[in-house]
C-alpha cells in the first residue's frame, strides 16, 4: 500500500490552525505598528544626522540586518533573563519583530526622506508652516507615500519570518502546524494547509495595508 493522502486528521485541528493564524496576524500587527514607528524615529535621526542617535541607529541597523532573526529572538528570550529581564514567548516574539522591522524600516523610510527635494522644505517655510506641520506634511507623509510598497513588502517578510517564533514555544501558525503533525504524522497535509493560510494572510495583509496607505498616506494631495 502506498502513502494515502488524508486531510481529515488535520482538518480535525482546524481550530488550532486558525488560532495560530490569528496569533501570527496579531504578532504581525503589533510588530508592524511599533516597528514602523521605530523606523520613522530612526529614519529622522539618520536622515537629519541627529547625533548621537544617528550613529546609534546606524550600528543598530547594521547589527540587525546582517544577523539572522532566529539569533535575535534567542538573544531576547534566553539572553535577557541574565540581565533580569524575563519576557514571555509572546513578549519576546513581539519585541524581536519590532526590533527587526524597525531596522529595515529605518533604512526604507530614510531613503524616502532623503528623496524629498529641498525646494519642498523652502516652500513650506515660505508658507509659514510651523516645524511640526512641515515635518508631517512636507517630510513624513511624502516620504512614507514614496516607500509605502516597500514597507508593506517588509511587513510581509516579517510576518513570514515570524514562523521562527515557534522555536521558543510561541503558539503561532507554524507552531500549530508542527504541533498537529507531531501528533498525527500528517506532515505533508499539515504544511500544505499552513502554506495556504500563510498565502491567504499575505494577500490579505498586502491588500489591507495598500488600501490603508492609499487612504491615509498617498491619497491626500501632497
Amino acid at each position: 500500500m502506498a502513502y494515502q493522502f488524508d486531510f481529515a486528521p488535520v482538518l480535525a485541528h482546524t481550530d488550532l490552525l486558525l488560532q495560530g493564524a490569528a496569533a501570527t496576524l496579531g504578532l504581525t500587527a503589533a510588530g508592524a505598528v511599533l516597528g514602523i514607528a521605530l523606523g520613522v524615529l530612526g529614519a529622522i535621526c539618520r536622515a537629519w544626522r541627529i547625533q548621537p542617535f544617528s550613529a546609534a541607529f546606524g550600528v543598530y541597523v547594521e547589527a540587525i540586518r546582517n544577523t539572522p532573526f532566529l539569533v535575535q529572538l534567542f538573544f531576547i528570550f534566553f539572553g535577557l533573563p541574565a540581565l533580569g529581564v524575563k519576557l514571555s514567548g509572546w513578549e519576546a516574539s513581539i519585541l524581536a519583530m519590532v526590533i527587526n522591522l524597525g531596522a529595515y524600516s529605518t533604512e526604507i523610510i530614510r531613503a524616502g526622506i532623503e528623496a524629498t527635494p529641498h525646494g519642498q522644505m523652502e516652500a513650506a517655510a515660505s508658507l509659514a508652516l510651523n516645524r511640526a506641520q512641515t515635518f508631517v506634511y512636507v517630510v513624513l507623509r511624502p516620504a512614507l507615500a514614496r516607500v509605502w510598497p516597500a514597507l508593506v513588502s517588509q511587513v510581509i517578510i516579517v510576518m513570514l519570518g515570524s514562523a521562527v517564533c515557534s522555536q521558543i514555544a510561541a503558539e503561532e501558525l507554524t507552531f500549530a502546524a508542527n504541533f498537529i503533525q507531531s501528533r498525527n504524522f500528517r506532515a505533508f497535509e499539515t504544511f500544505f494547509l499552513a502554506t495556504a493560510l500563510y498565502f491567504a494572510m499575505a494577500l490579505l495583509v498586502r491588500q489591507l495595508l495598500m488600501r490603508l496607505g492609499q487612504r491615509f498616506i498617498v491619497g491626500r494631495p501632497r
Binding site: L160, A163, F191, T195, Y198, F199, A202, L203, R206
Partner: peptide, 10 residues
C-alpha cells in the same frame, strides 16, 4: 504573489 506570499521553508 505566490512565492513572496508563502514561507520559503514551506
Amino acid at each position: 504573489e505566490l512565492f513572496q506570499g508563502t514561507p520559503l521553508l514551506m
